[in-house]
């Protein structure tokens, strides 16, 4: 009974996260300005990290955790670099 509830809620949360990623990718593609695109890309990274964690719960594998950690790290670095680029016009001075 509870296992059925869990598997259904995993599926519902994956659908919700996919919709969230669709909203974020709309802002990436048609965001009016560059900072909107960067913000949406950061959100997309976080949502991908959450989605990988739900995949890990679904399959019971530890492998997805490492991928989620790497995506969170890369999201921070890329957003910081893009914000620096928007501020200065170059990343490394």
């Amino acid at each position: 009974m509870m296992a059925t509830f869990l598997s259904w809620s995993i599926m519902i949360s994956q659908i919700l996260l996919a919709l969230a990623m669709a909203c974020a990718s709309y802002r990436v593609l048609w965001g009016p300005r560059a900072q909107d695109r960067v913000l949406a890309l950061d959100t997309l990274y976080v949502n991908a990290s959450i989605l990988l964690l739900t995949f890990g719960i679904r399959t019971g594998s530890n492998l997805y955790f490492d991928a989620a950690l790497i995506i969170a790290l890369l999201g921070f670095v890329s957003t910081a670099a893009l914000a620096k680029f928007l501020m200065r016009g170059e990343v490394i001075e």
Partner: peptide, 14 residues
Amino acid sequence: LLLLGSGLAFTGCL
């Protein structure tokens, strides 16, 4: 907890 977390993420993206 999964439903809460993904619902919050979806609300944020909305």
